[in-house]
Design a protein around this nucleic acid. Structure first.
Lengths: 211, 211, 211, 211
DNA sequence: CATGAATGAGCGTTCATTCAT
DNA sequence: TATGAATGAACGCTCATTCAT
């Protein structure tokens, strides 16, 4: 097969994934039909199976892709050792918020469906997703641990703290849905970061409009 | 119909709901079949339809019941005006943690399935659930608002803050699932309360083993 | 469940099997759809699954039923020790021919589909069918072995001989299909028995119209 | 188009057929996919359709080819008028057994799938196959008829007798499958011939190890 | 001519719901 | 009221066939 064909095949695969994300985000794993995905991706049902061996495979590919992107965000935000710990947390939240804007759907899946499926999903999706989740959490926990050693954060189980950070960020997503406000979610990145830093124990000096 | 018959009917209905909770918690809304619920409730499939007009109705009844119980917890914890704001938050978290222990399933549904379905569930479960959610959040937001006025909490959008509180508590649930630790979740109520108070802006003086 | 209900359920199951036989006989295992069986049995597709867990299960039940009936025929024909060996073979062939008349379809399945599937069927039907086949062949082989010891039949591998007998009887089925003759297959039982006895080595003295 | 091109095209066609035989033999008509055939023939799926207009056409070509080869065997074995009738039957059986060895697959198809499809196959394969079958049977019947006139065989419907011969040979195939013995089928050609001659009414004087 | 991506009708199977008993 | 057999629409998935390259 020529390289160009391989390339195009990969593009097409990506395209299908991108369209599928929205469906899964809106209807959940079980509620999303291959038929709908096919329509959303503007291909026939059969074509889906030329790219993914099953619905499960498609969904897992999507989780992998999404959690990969999320890990990149964490990495990019945390790796710059020149910046202060607090600064880096703010950047992390910021990047996450922006990721929401463009990848709001994939995040929603990661947060809710992933959470539920990690418990006892159909076709044993659980372990696979849980593993992606853990890689993600672990990196964040390491950073928090470092912050604790430097005295910036108060002592607490780093993994629990990482989970808390993740869920506070997720709370903003829920809030945006419930409140149905018009402005981009990332507008509130500062406010969210305040909650995160507060939870981790850092003295909060909000730089947002409040106060 | 005699009052006693009415009473028994109501008991039976409750019994079915209690058995259904576990199923929904384990398999999600779509993944739970009426067949399974019937078996779990030790009745026939047909009987289910004598008590609930549809699967949707059954699930909604369950959400209503669960979120009702959750609202009671919030109310009980927050109403005692003799206690300090911070004290009441700690009690709230404590009660929630205990609710997890006994009603872990209903909570899991409220947190994950509820969250997802609130967006765009099958058969338009969304609006109904969202309304329950809001009543719940609103009460918490009122209390936080009061705390802010009293200067105990730092200023922030109270509804957003309420959502953050809820999600921090939810984080512990996720953490317990991921970490698969053996002790009761409520063991960690103190640690969770610390995160909550930190996020809300209260100066944290942990009374747990840390420090 | 009352005994009458159980009884009726069993009848219904039998009825479905009887209707299914024709379909499988005409279109083979893979060529027969559950839809067609449902139509033939005058029920909905879903009902089929109230009685059989899968297409495979339905087919296997049918094979079991048919091969059970066939074994009974063999047993009935061969057990009467008062009759001569040759006489019993003639009775056997006769009964088989009559079985064809009423159960032509099940026989066709046993002969052709069974044969093919025994090799490498879909969903590993092979071993199950092969086992039924063997019980059947073994009883016949025992009888032939006895005949050989009594000097009525010439020496030969009894199992091979049993297979030959079965296939000669089967040949008549093929012949009736190819020639498309109008009279009942059992009309030719004598002629078929002559072939069988000849093959087994008994001196043939046909009592049919030939000679 | 040059003759050489035509030639090569024909070769390629043959090659595909030879590879397809194995697939059809193992999985049956319906159970064999064009995908599998393409893989087995080391071409793409599309190419298959350059040589055969449809799966049906491919299968029919294969039946034609196989039954042609079978007819040749019959012809070769029976035409040598110098040999005795009995001798020629033994040669026929022998050749058939050898044909099994090299063309076991095509035979299996002819015997089982062919048999079933002859009745009412998908896409009306029936009549076409039946016609091949008849040509084949008819030649054998003629020979048997001759044997009967010469008094070597007892009187019987020649076509029925031909069918019986064919099925006895087929019995050995079934037997080899059921018994799963290791030696080549042709090892037992003598034994099979004994059964055939016995069935046709010839006095059996086995030349095999038995007696 | 060779390819393999695209197609869509059709398959086996599931399950919420109905209804005669 | 309680039952569970019957239903049929809808699902995930397969595969013979087409066609642009």
């Amino acid at each position: 097969m020529s390289s160009r064909q391989t390339q195009e095949r990969e593009w097409h695969r990506q395209f299908i994934l991108e369209r599928a994300v929205t469906e899964f985000a809106q209807h959940g794993y079980q509620g999303t039909t291959m038929e709908r995905i096919a329509e959303a991706a503007e291909v026939s049902k059969g074509t889906l199976y030329n790219y993914f061996s099953s619905k499960r495979d498609l969904f897992l590919s999507l989780i992998e892709w999404g959690s990969g992107r999320a890990r990149e965000i964490v990495e990019e935000a945390l790796e710059d050792e020149e910046k202060s710990i607090e600064e880096r947390i703010r950047i992390l939240v910021n990047h996450f918020m922006e990721f929401f804007e463009t990848g709001r759907d994939i995040h929603r899946i990661l947060m809710t469906e992933g959470n539920r499926i990690a418990v006892s999903g159909p076709g044993d999706l659980g372990p696979a997703i849980r593993s992606h989740y853990l890689k993600f959490i672990t990196r964040l926990a390491e950073f928090i641990s470092q912050g604790q050693q430097e005295g910036v954060f108060r002592p607490a189980d780093p993994q629990r703290a990482a989970m808390v950070v993740l869920n506070i960020v997720g709370a903003e997503l829920s809030h945006s849905i419930i409140s149905d406000y018009p402005e981009p979610v990332s507008t509130h990145a500062e406010a969210v970061a305040d909650f995160v830093l507060g939870a981790l124990g850092s003295p909060v000096i909000s730089r947002g409009p409040a106060r």
